[in-house]
Design a protein around this nucleic acid. Structure first.
Lengths: 233, 233
DNA sequence: TAGACAACCCGTACACCGTACGTAGTACAC
DNA sequence: GTGTACTACGTACGGTGTACGGGTTGTCTA
């Protein structure tokens, strides 16, 4: 079989025993990348910029991270480490899941680039495993199969990501007055053709859905939790 | 105010009246891009490759599409045009929504790059509007507000995307035996530390969840539809 | 009908990206 | 002391999106 270095970053030891002591660390690199992503978005994260921020040569990073993709894994797991989970579930499933979800949305609001990454690049670093473990602990009393529980976990996680991504999109769009004006013009003219009567009715119904984001999220997540707790399969 | 060309592509006329007749069209460019994305993934779509496939100069594309982002809008709307929706809902809400969802997952299986794009870049081209209109028609009898219905639509759509993306991830991971082996090694060693008892239990429970994908999807989407039809807010 | 001008077509060029490769230096294993 | 595994990183390559400018073509105005 192949004796190559493993592709999975969690299988590579961070530190070897032979050469000089490394001047940096995976954690520091990930932290710098996260700061960059927070400030400039995912597209603003480049190996050169990270290296510059760390005062290192660009290619030095590749001693710590074999590919940029793996850097994303590190970033995601660092964010997953921000969840503050109690050691033991309280016993109130609904409350525990709601709290779990709120931790998630909070982390993703701090780091708006996370949902896009989580959805397209699921990874299971130590911190992600800790989150999964907690979810399973909350569901421990349920008679559902392990596989079904994992499915439900994916669903909860995905829903949180989806919501966070939606919020991020809203924020981005809301920032540009021109964009909003153009969208209104376009939708107005589309509706005016008469081809979309129901759409017209929906828009005419007074758009007063700009409630407190936390309330919207709680309502949304309550629905998802309903669904999880009602699951039989 | 500004007299600039609108940023929103649906507000730009496809064809002007002054110069020579264009040799290509937005639709042809989008179709080429879609073929490329289907074959090589989103990352394989570059302006140069599209132009080459069309037999055009790279920069010529920019007469049709002001930025690459807008090309994505065109691609997504072309995919949205693949939904085969009846002129009128049947009257059976659950059946209509289930059919709608099945159309969605089918389109996204044909074009595995769509969910990532839809989630991060919602756009409302004519075909997307048609889909929205159909959903609202299905929900016409419901007393919910227009805003709530739009939220529910976003939720249904998002769920479909999420599922499709999850499937795409599975397919990609399943393709590499090495990757699967490494993941198993890693999870095994993680579980062996004893730090994740519930995770261990979930894995120990015999992973026989590899059912028919259609059945899994139908089960998943049935849950989401339950949630939509039960909505009161 | 003359000519202005808008829109098409596209080659060149620039800034930036991820990263392969090679070299130099360092510290532990033998 | 020597070999060797490791860190550090400059240079370079092939790719990206797209700004710019010039040549061409068709239509609308005078």
């Amino acid at each position: 079989m192949t004796n190559e270095r493993p592709e999975l970053i969690w299988l590579r030891p961070e530190r070897a025993t032979r050469g000089p002591a490394p001047a940096h660390s995976r954690a520091a690199i990930a932290a710098t990348a996260i700061a960059l992503a927070d400030a400039e978005g995912l597209a603003g994260v480049s190996m050169r910029k990270i290296a510059a921020a760390l005062g290192a040569g660009t290619m030095s990073l590749y001693t710590y991270v074999p590919k940029k993709e793996h850097l994303f894994d590190l970033m995601l797991d660092a964010v997953a480490g921000e969840w503050r989970l109690p050691d033991q579930p309280s016993g109130d499933q609904r409350a525990d899941l709601a709290d779990f979800a709120r931790q998630g949305i909070a982390a993703m609001r701090r780091h708006p680039w996370t949902p896009a990454l989580v959805l397209t690049r699921p990874s299971m670093g130590p911190n992600s495993l800790r989150c999964t473990e907690y979810f399973l602990a909350v569901m421990a009393a349920s008679p559902l199969s392990g596989g079904t529980k994992m499915e439900l976990f994916a669903m909860l996680n995905g829903s949180i990501c989806q919501f966070a991504q939606w919020e991020a999109n809203q924020r981005e769009a809301g920032g540009s007055a021109q964009w909003q004006a153009e969208l209104a013009t376009y939708l107005g003219s589309a509706v005016a053709t008469g081809a979309y009567p129901h759409l017209a009715a929906a828009f005419a119904g007074g758009e007063t859905t700009d409630m407190d984001p936390d309330a919207v999220f709680d309502r949304f997540v309550a629905r998802v939790i309903d669904l999880i707790l009602a699951a039989k399969g």
